[in-house]
């Protein structure tokens, strides 16, 4: 493949991921509205909201410093860079190298450190609560993410997203169930990473019980807009990976990947309509359960790879 067509493909790939990011919040909102029997807002309301935010000025707390003002750019920048590693199906992403899964995870960790520090910069006790929770939950969910990568590496023999989903063809039938479970774990990781129900409720109005929302209480205007965009991108990155895994297990097609990625939005919407959020003290148990599930999935994959008879 020559450089030009490679670049075109990579740019198209990134455009698709960004499109998923722009659509997902709408899909989640529509799903919730339909299930609740409400008329609901349009698919594009969140875009209008952020467009408005990006045109506004800003009010900064007098306790904050330059760090607070720089963080939205770091948060969004790290998320954008992580997005460049994510392939849609077997399209090649813009950046890819052996072991890029590690950089993907650590870029999100960079964003997490940035946003936690920004929250603490305000000197507000509420934002401290959110920061402390975010740091803890982010730390605990990390092993689950790496177990997902490990399982994929074990099944395919590759260690970069592009190679895992792009190079390896055909999966033995016994692996399908493992891959579907991997997909499920990734969707569960989204609830932690992107702060959705049951870990966090993005629509809650009580600061005491918030996680992600409380950390950005003091942001407004353009900064808040950037943070919200970063949130969409983060959700989309994981949703596309979940969709890739699903497509990998079932049937390879770009359109199917796209549909599955939006399906993740539907799933999140359904969960948010049917389930209440966890009590905060139960969140650690919830996250450790995801890790345990990821561990079980890995060992099942390992046993299946070695054709060990389970009788």
């Amino acid at each position: 493949m020559d450089t030009l067509s490679y670049m075109v493909q990579a740019l198209f790939n990134t455009a698709v991921v960004v499109a998923v990011a722009l659509l997902l919040p709408g899909v989640i909102n529509r799903t919730r509205a339909i299930l609740a029997g409400r008329k609901g807002v349009t698919m594009y309301q969140h875009l209008n909201n952020v467009h408005l935010l990006l045109r506004k000025g800003a009010v900064y707390s007098s306790t904050t410093t330059f760090l607070f003002r720089a963080v939205p750019a770091v948060y969004l920048g790290a998320t954008l860079t992580a997005l460049l590693f994510v392939p849609v199906g077997n399209l090649r992403p813009l950046l890819s190298f052996e072991g890029d899964v590690v950089m993907f995870a650590y870029l999100f960790a960079l964003g997490r450190l940035a946003i936690v520090l920004a929250a603490m910069d305000t000197g507000s006790s509420f934002e401290g609560m959110g920061a402390s929770r975010e740091a803890l939950y982010g730390a605990l969910v990390e092993p689950a993410m790496f177990l997902v990568f490990a399982t994929l590496a074990l099944i395919t023999g590759y260690t970069s997203f592009a190679d895992i989903f792009g190079l390896c063809r055909g999966v033995e039938s016994q692996m399908i169930v493992v891959l579907l479970l991997v997909c499920y774990v990734v969707v569960r990781v989204i609830t932690v990473e992107a702060g959705r129900i049951p870990v966090d409720d993005p629509r809650t109005h009580l600061e005491l019980t918030m996680i992600h929302e409380v950390m950005v209480l003091d942001y407004c205007g353009i900064d808040l807009g950037m943070i919200q965009i970063a949130g969409w991108l983060k959700t989309a990155a994981f949703a596309v990976i979940a969709a890739d895994v699903m497509a990998y297990a079932l049937w390879y097609n770009i359109a199917l990947v796209l549909l599955a990625a939006l399906g993740v939005g539907v799933f999140i919407g359904i969960v948010e309509s049917l389930q209440a959020r966890n009590k905060l003290s139960r969140n650690t148990t919830y996250i450790l359960t995801i890790v345990a599930l990821a561990m079980v999935v890995f060992f099942v994959a390992y046993l299946l790879q070695h054709d060990i008879d389970i009788q």
């Binding site: 000025g57 007098s62 305000t122 000197g123």
Partner: peptide
Amino acid sequence: AARRRTVESGPTWGC
């Protein structure tokens, strides 16, 4: 972008 807009400072949001 911030140069052309009003940037103010106030107290931290205390809920």
